Simulated scan of single mutants.
Amino acid sequence: MTTRTLDIDSVRAFLHIAELGSFTRAAEAMSTTQGAISLRLKRLEDRLGCRLIERTPRSVQLSARGAAFLERARELMETHDRALAAFSSSRQRLTIGISDHVAGPELPALIARMNAQDPHLLIDIRIGSSGDLLQSFDRRELDAALARLHVGRSDGEVIAEEKFGWFASPGWQHRAGEPLPIATMPEPCGVRAMASRILDEAGVAWTETFVGGGVSAVSAAVVAGLGIAALSPRMLPLGAVDVGPRLGLPDLPRLPVLLHSRVTDDRSREALAALSAAFRSAVRG
């Protein structure tokens, strides 16, 4: 009787495909190629004798057998990772700064993705403005930083680009003849600088009506009807609408999100790869 065994990397590849919904993102998370991911999945499917993933040109979905195998695959990886951690001499820390304009509602899922990649890697997350985080990164207080493109910086890996718009509460109306009321974050916020520059170049009179210490505070001001804000649709408060076309405001550009990193060890690199892949999936979605 032949004993069937499962290849751990193949199981991990399956989990990445299932959870990220993409062969491309799975390859990024495992720092490999789409071809290698496909081969690992095929090896696993051949071993199990069934198809786990249904792939079309437009979607990647679990088959019925794949959905049944998913929880068992997670349990297997958790047991595998616990066994390895039991023989680890020390717990490693990875300190990551994430811009408040980047973190968004997906932050819990991003943290969960990194933890799933390596449950015994101690992840230390710091939230702040891109400018402050990059200064901390330069002072070596952070191992990595996920931030918006910042003036004067040419380093970092672009992992996504996001569209921005001018958003307000549904019932908000601009009073004719008055400067455009803007809710924003304090300097040196890059989104604030971008929005004010574009309004000035278009000759739009504006004034600050609210300055918040984070995107959540700015979003609250928008919902309260204090004015409009330059936000990514991913960061929108409930019910906010894009009033840019109605007011004839200039279009806002897509802003890059960059990963700045100095990590060299495999564990940290793999965790950051999982973070980047999960963030790309969140932006795409």
Rank of each mutant, 00 (worst) to 15 (best):
L121V: 01
L76P: 04
R267L: 13
R269A: 06
A217R: 11
G213D: 02
I8W: 08
L20S: 01
R284T: 12
A73H: 01
T209D: 05
D138I: 02
P57A: 03
E201D: 06
M1H: 12
A29Y: 04
A83C: 10
R113A: 10
A103S: 04
A116I: 00
F23D: 04
A229R: 02
L20P: 06
P237E: 03
A202R: 03
H80E: 14
R65T: 10
L255D: 04
G165K: 11
L62T: 04
R192Y: 06
D100E: 07
T2I: 12
E141H: 08
H120V: 03
L249K: 03
V204C: 03
I123Y: 05
R74Q: 11
R25A: 15
A205F: 00
H120Y: 12
G66P: 05
D7F: 05
M185P: 07
A274K: 01
A221S: 11
Q92D: 14
E54V: 09
L76K: 07
E75T: 11
D132E: 11
R234H: 11
H16T: 05
D124L: 02
S129V: 05
I96D: 00
I111G: 03
S216E: 10
D242E: 12
R58H: 13
D242S: 09
Q173E: 15
R262G: 13
E54L: 12
A278E: 04
G66K: 00
G212E: 00
T184V: 12
T79Y: 10
A13K: 03
V191M: 12
A230Y: 02
A36N: 15
S219P: 08
P186Y: 08
P188C: 07
P108I: 00
A195N: 00
P188Q: 04
L84A: 14
L146T: 07
H120K: 01
G171K: 14
I53T: 08
S99Y: 01
D7R: 13
R254P: 04
A220L: 06
L238V: 13
I198Q: 01
A193N: 08
D138R: 11
F279N: 06
G97N: 01
D265A: 11
L180I: 11
H101C: 15
G177D: 13
D46N: 15
L252S: 04
A168Q: 13
D242Y: 11
S281I: 09
Q173I: 14
G213S: 03
E270H: 13
A193K: 09
A205Y: 00
S136D: 12
A224N: 06
I125W: 01
A230K: 00
S88K: 09
A67V: 03
A112T: 00
A64I: 08
P181R: 12
A68K: 07
E201N: 02
H101G: 09
P186F: 07
R25L: 07
L180W: 13
E157L: 14
E270M: 14
L110N: 00
K42P: 07
A230F: 03
E19T: 05
R192W: 10
I228N: 02
A160W: 08
F87V: 10
S10F: 10
S59Q: 10
S196T: 15
S268W: 04
A26P: 05
G35Y: 10
E208N: 06
R74P: 02
A205I: 00
L84C: 09
T209Q: 06
H80V: 09
I198L: 05
